[in-house]
Computed example of a mutant assay.
Amino acid sequence: MVRMSADERRESVVRAAMSEFARGGYHGTSTEAIARRVGVSQPYLFRLFPSKKAIFLAASERCMNDTTRTFAEASVGLEGEEALHAMANAYTKVIAEQPELLMMQMQTYVAVAAAEAEGDEGFGESVRAGWMRLWDVVHLPLGADVDDTTTFMAYGMLVNCLVSMGFPPGHRVWEGLYPSARTKGRLEK
């Protein structure tokens, strides 16, 4: 049996945490479940990460970084409508192939809102920084147009919500989400 380094073990914890938190959320996921999924003891888990919050924030950061990378890679060398379609198609593929990424995003937003409602202002700082990196990666290929970036991100969040609620492909709720001629005219400004 090959022994993993601490960095490799941390990586396996982050992957396991993403899956567990995606299903159960911050409060509904135990560190015991994460440790069990990785195949380590809870005390070892806490040698790798100082707290459950640190594990969650590492998983959340990975989730945002993966999403940011998806958009960045999809839009390389593209601008405007081409970039928009490439990023939207890449994200659609990620949602279909890695649903835990989408669910981790949604759980992250819920966890931040809950923590801040309880007075933990620091919990959201990392998440907001990740969101701003995501915003910037989308913003530039869309011509640094605030309206186009806002629209893209708003549609993305709507897609996240609809997928999270389990609306299947082909359901009538999706009809209004496909690019239309009016969007095309605005992006070609």
Rank of each mutant, 00 (worst) to 15 (best):
G119Q: 10
H27F: 08
V146K: 07
T151I: 13
A90E: 06
M18A: 14
F56A: 09
P169D: 09
V159T: 12
S164A: 15
F21S: 04
P141M: 03
L187P: 05
M103R: 10
A90Y: 00
R172D: 09
L177R: 03
D7M: 02
D66C: 10
E20N: 14
T108K: 00
S126I: 10
H27V: 15
R15V: 13
A111D: 02
T150N: 12
G24K: 11
C161L: 14
T150F: 04
E82T: 05
Q42L: 08
S5Y: 00
R23I: 15
R3V: 09
R47T: 09
L162Y: 05
R69I: 03
V127S: 00
T151P: 11
R128L: 04
G170D: 04
A117C: 06
S75T: 08
A90C: 07
A74S: 08
A35P: 04
A113D: 14
T150I: 07
A54Q: 06
G39D: 08
A58Q: 01
V38E: 06
E61I: 12
L134Q: 02
L48K: 00
E121K: 11
F21R: 02
T151N: 12
V94F: 01
K93T: 15
S41M: 05
D147Y: 11
V14C: 01
A117E: 14
A86E: 05
Y44G: 12
L140H: 11
E100L: 06
D145C: 13
R47D: 03
E97T: 10
V94R: 00
R186S: 15
F167E: 12
G122N: 06
G166S: 13
A113I: 08
I95F: 02
L45C: 11
A83E: 07
L142K: 01
A90V: 09
L57I: 01
T183V: 12
R47M: 03
Q98Y: 03
M18V: 15
D148G: 15
H27C: 12
E188Q: 11
V173Q: 09
M4S: 08
D66Y: 08
Y109K: 00
I95H: 07
W131G: 05
M106E: 07
W131F: 12
A129I: 09
C161N: 15
E32G: 15
T92Y: 09
T108I: 03
E175M: 06
Q98E: 05
L187F: 04
M87E: 01
T29V: 10
I95M: 06
A88E: 14
S5F: 00
